[in-house]
Design a protein around this nucleic acid. Structure first.
Lengths: 341, 341
DNA sequence: CCCTCCAATGCAACCGGTTGCATTCATCAT
DNA sequence: ATGATGAATGCAACCGGTTGCATTGGAGGG
């Protein structure tokens, strides 16, 4: 087997407990002894056994990451992997490991989660999406197990930590950007209304109009049944014919891209912008202006929040808002759109 | 704390060792006692503590997954997340957990790997990419720690398990498909020659020509300095002007897409196909014929292989070849290309 | 010189399982 | 009746750390 704390103790001529104290920086150990123990550790190549440590401390220093089933194109979007990257890097920085788990449905997800928590494999849990009536959150609340959600959880989950963008403000800023450019009839193109993302962005849209003294006109608001390109494409005709819009604020790049390809077919030119700063939006012509929601930073903040909580850093707020970044590109550039570029 | 094996033992009126034996299905325990113990476990809601179990068994039942730094567009491609999905699902099926770790460079990757292995956090390791002169593999060999690589490792790594596609055969099949359609001057468009993927696919290309009695003409072979769309675009002019090709077999969808967009600009129409069955290739017009390498299945097989090895299932081969699937689409459909569709 | 006090370190129990070996008891052949 | 046999179960050590409490020894005060 490998080198144990007893081997180090023997080599340094001390008790195992002394070695343990040196490792943890206990100040009661004399400089001289510390040095001897460190020497011994170095020579023997000692590395503490994780399982033994977990058992003795009653903590695993491991977080569990639940990745939802792959509905739709969730995996095509780099959101998940970028968030995982942020999570992983921050967790490593603070000495935590992350265990992940894919599932093929909510039921399986819950049962995997139960295994993680009940067998004490994890100290805390990260949920990648916030669903309505979430069984995972219900279980975690019941078990009183610390967890963090990406997205805003229902208010009945009292102990939920969460990170999210301020979607109201993000859309407010986008609309304000159009208004500043002299647009007044800005259409809103969102996804299904039962997503909180949709509702929040719609509110930001309305707030911005109101704040700038533009009268509300609900004939400019369009909600698609999904977030796919075809959904944007399907609504495009209606938007162009009826609404007399002079700009399009879409709640998702794919919606915007569907709309844009329709416009291109008809030779219509209108400034348009989306959300999520997708790869496709950034390579297509005209390159699509988009609001970057910073998925990696969402992951970083989620790890910060959860670990902070586990380490007993109270006084931490239970949530964290990640700012969005407006990536200005050709699709909202007047010069480009008028061919003067 | 939670329910321990002692609680169960007390409730069932037996010794902890008996409970342990019941859990492991030891046949020496009488039916009657088994039943009583199961009852007790059920009533108390017992779940064995993972750390204690790891410590006692000297195994963590955990695999470590090293994800390389995000050079280029590695993350935009869904390859990683799909492979992770396959890994995770198979590992769960066999009672293993997976710990993952992102790094921002090879040096950091190695140091994270060392932590995993030395502290006995993991029983085995999965490497997502096979690099030349890989420090991770060198360390794992030295430590004699079981590991599996996605891609083919250098032959000096004697204990490497690996999974990969048969890239020779995959390209062979693609070229044979073109030959069957009557094409004779098929251009090969590959990435840099120092990638084994490139070399293997080139060999498959040549093998296919030879097997079908078509004379080799190296003026039809083009190697790009990268795998980006712009690399394909940059080579397109050269390919079209000099080579008199009547079909394009590209070693990557993005290379093919770059080439395709150049052709579209010039009004040239040639059948073309790529590799990796990317999202973009499947939505663009004409939809791109592509070889699907089945990333999820690569993950599944990697987990199978590594776990099989850990469980001492000898007689398992040290590698596994994942078959590829040719996704035929419009870009190689003669009817579509000639406008008869 | 003796007692007190504190700094430095050791002892041993404990975390929650696993497992080799001993023990018990019923069965069976002699 | 008696020892052998074997099935069922318990005992206790062990995995490798952590930590409350006891112990040791030297310095300082009376």
């Amino acid at each position: 087997m490998s080198v144990t704390i007893k081997d180090v103790a023997r080599k340094a001529g001390v008790a195992p407990s002394t070695v343990s104290r040196v490792i943890h920086g206990n100040p009661k150990i004399s400089e001289e002894t510390q040095e001897r123990v460190r020497q011994a550790m170095g020579v023997l190549g000692y590395h503490p056994n994780a399982a033994a440590r977990s058992l003795a401390r009653g903590r695993s220093y491991t977080l569990g990451l639940m990745i939802p089933n792959s509905e739709d194109d969730l995996f095509v979007k780099p959101f998940f992997i970028m968030a995982m990257r942020g999570l992983s890097i921050e967790a490593q920085r603070r000495g935590y490991n992350i265990m992940f788990s894919f599932s093929s449905g909510e039921e399986e997800e819950v049962s995997l989660l139960k295994r993680f928590v009940r067998t004490n494999v994890v100290d805390g849990v990260i949920l990648m999406t916030s669903r309505r009536d979430d069984k995972c959150m219900a279980f975690l609340e019941e078990k009183n197990c610390p967890y963090v959600v990406i997205g805003r959880p229902e208010s009945r989950f009292l102990h939920a930590l969460w990170v999210d963008n301020d979607n109201v403000r993000a859309m407010y800023n986008l609309v304000a950007y159009f208004l500043k450019a002299g647009r007044r009839r800005i259409a809103f193109l969102g996804g299904p209304a039962d997503f909180s993302v949709t509702r929040d962005r719609l509110r930001g849209y309305r707030d911005a109009l109101k704040a700038h003294g533009v009268e509300r006109d609900d004939s400019l608001v369009f909600l698609a049944p999904g977030f796919q390109e075809r959904d944007g494409y399907a609504l495009a005709g209606k938007i162009l014919s009826g609404a007399m819009a002079d700009a399009i604020a879409a709640a998702d790049d794919f919606l915007a891209l569907g709309m844009a390809s329709y416009m291109e077919e008809r030779g219509t030119i209108l400034p348009i912008a989306g959300f999520n700063n997708t790869m496709k939006g950034s390579v297509i012509r005209p390159r699509l202006t988009s609001v970057d929601i910073q998925p990696e930073l969402l992951g970083t903040r989620a790890a910060e929040l959860l670990i902070g909580h586990l380490e007993g850093e109270d006084s931490l707020p239970p949530y964290s808002i990640v700012e969005t970044i407006l990536m200005e590109r050709e699709s909202t550039d007047p010069d480009f759109l008028s061919g003067n570029s």
